[in-house]
Design a protein around this nucleic acid. Sequence first.
DNA 1: TATTCCCTGTGC
DNA 2: GCACAGGGAATA
Length: 263
Amino acid sequence: MPELPEVEEAAGRLRRAAVGHRVLALRALHPSQRKQLPPRRARRAVGRRIVAVERRGKYQTIRFDDDSTLLVHFRMDGDWHIGPCGDPPARFARAVLDLDNDTRLSLVDARALCTITWHERGVDPLPALGPEADDPAITATALRNALAARRGPIKAVLLDQRVLAGLGNIYAAESLWRASIHPAASAATLREPTLQRLITAIRASLADGVRNAARYRTGVRVAPLKVYDREGEPCTRCGATIRRITQAGRSTYYCAGCQRLKR
DNA sequence: TATTCCCTGTGC
DNA sequence: GCACAGGGAATA
């Protein structure tokens, strides 16, 4: 379930397990990942010390002591399994990184859509990304400027990582619900007060997500989502029925009662 | 700007 | 069986 909060949580576990340690082995296991990270490229990481693990949007960067970088993206359902090197490989392990502290980092992903790529020093491994979606420095004016040239509904634009980095299908829907904005509203026509509400809503949704992602592993009950995957259920704010529509090929959930389309 | 595809599993 | 899945790049 990796959007910004879940990737943040996973990157934290990775950081605690890996920073300061040397790579004994790196292997891509599935053909999809072997294509991105063939054995001769993977060998470049061997012997290097991991000096930093960072998250940017939904990407994770593993930086080595020679300033080369491994760039990891979980896509739909990637995750890290962290255990001793002697453990049998997890069923859906797509790449494995063994460290000199007897730690095996397994990139697990049933769908094999995750990406792992190695980048030489001096090249920026990240694609062009907008500001972090929960960056407190984002202003309504800046967001309005970013949306001015966009055609299309706000929901689809929120999924564009060049506009804001880190939002996916779940938190885009949750944020629009919190801000009482219809997902089909034309992005370019939203006014600043509305966008300010959206910015606040995005921050709140992601903060909830971060809290939930931290609790999830400890077994503590997590706060339920407001609209995502709740088609047919009543809205907790107005009681109207949550609807599901398709936008840009994916499901959008919203409340037809309190997320009105103005025109 | 909107589909199609990448993969493979789960749930209806 | 078959639709569908939280992402993103490549197409048309």
